[in-house]
């Protein structure tokens, strides 16, 4: 029996562990007839942005983390952060995996690990403590806590004030009024216990942004498994993992919506006027992303086109 240690930098009750990693670990045990067992460490081995190196260097065998925490290193995979993509985490996550396979993999970003899968969280919304952000002018002068370049671009474009504080400080930042609002998928309102503070949520079709995650195993450790076990593990990983993870995130988002309702919050769509302005921004962000990809030898425009087409295909059940 081979034991693979796994590090999670979120608490054991977090949806990523509960709905994604534990089920995946059970799948692995099942398909390998118990020959490979995943052991969750009681504490994370390193900071979130250090997990990738921790896998490369063998501090831990299996781990996952957020691409956006290392924006230059993982630039191609930040495609999933763009606004107005898919409506669910399944759509975006599966599309990201397929895009990885067809367009990005050859760039060799993940050459030092064995990539088990990728995932994205559900569509990001705008949550405010005092009012709905419906029109573009509603964001003027509002202090919004963001992480990552896409949410920041949105807040800045519409005249908001960007508050940069670490995500775990969200409760403190919002309850103290350091920020008036925050951009998150609905899941995070439950995870960070902020549903009772930000009661005015607004969304656009396809989300304002999303975050993407890698999920990988140490290369030597994986190579040390028998061919049969490797194949069995990959059968429950890759696109299968993107679906499993997407379903986990979508389930967590639904619970987030329940938490919002229970806290007396409401969710409204943003106005057509806002969407029209956002379209322009999305176009600009796509150009920027495309240019960076072109510089890396990846067809930027084609990649985005492919991603959007796959989102539609997955949504259509393919």
């Amino acid at each position: 029996q081979t034991v693979l240690t796994m590090s999670n930098w979120v608490p054991p009750a977090h949806p990523i562990v509960k709905y994604i990693m534990v089920p995946w670990a059970n799948d692995v045990a099942k398909v390998t007839n118990g020959r490979v067992r995943i052991q969750m460490l009681p504490k994370p081995v390193a900071r979130p942005n250090q997990h990738y190196d921790a896998v490369i260097n063998g501090q831990v065998d299996v781990a996952w983390s957020t691409y956006g925490y290392q924006p230059e290193r993982f630039q191609p995979y930040l495609i999933a952060e763009l606004p107005q993509l898919g409506d669910t985490a399944v759509d975006n996550g599966v599309a990201l995996w397929r895009t990885h396979k067809t367009h990005i993999e050859k760039a060799g970003v993940h050459k030092d690990v064995h990539l088990l899968g990728v995932m994205t969280h559900g569509p990001g919304l705008m949550h405010h403590s005092k009012k709905f952000i419906l029109k573009p002018s509603d964001l003027q002068g509002q202090k919004i806590r963001v992480g990552g370049d896409v949410p920041r671009a949105i807040v800045q474009t519409f005249g908001g004030v960007v508050i940069t504080q670490p995500a775990p400080k969200s409760f403190e930042v919002l309850s103290a009024g350091i920020a008036d609002g925050i951009m998150f998928p609905t899941e995070s309102l439950k995870s960070f216990k902020i549903a009772s503070i930000v009661k005015y949520s607004t969304f656009v079709k396809g989300g304002l942004y999303s975050s993407s995650f890698w999920f990988a195993v140490n290369k030597n450790k994986f190579a040390g498994l028998s061919k049969a076990d490797q194949d069995a593990i990959m059968k429950v990983s890759g696109e299968k993992f993107a679906r499993l993870a997407g379903a986990g995130w979508d389930r967590a988002d639904k619970e987030g919506v329940v938490a919002i309702k229970e806290a007396g919050g409401q969710i409204k769509p943003m106005s057509a006027e806002f969407v029209a302005e956002l379209n322009k921004l999305t176009e600009k962000l796509e150009l920027e992303y495309g240019a960076k990809m072109d510089a890396m030898g990846i067809d930027g425009k084609g990649t985005i086109k492919f991603f959007r087409a796959e989102v539609a295909r997955v949504a259509a059940g393919k």
């Binding site: 942005n49 190196d53 290392q70 924006p71 230059e72 992480g147």
Partner: peptide
């Protein structure tokens, strides 16, 4: 060396 090779940067200010 690894940080320089992989262009490790911070999330907000890079």
């Amino acid at each position: 060396v690894s940080h320089l090779e992989t262009t490790e940067v911070t999330m907000t200010l890079h």
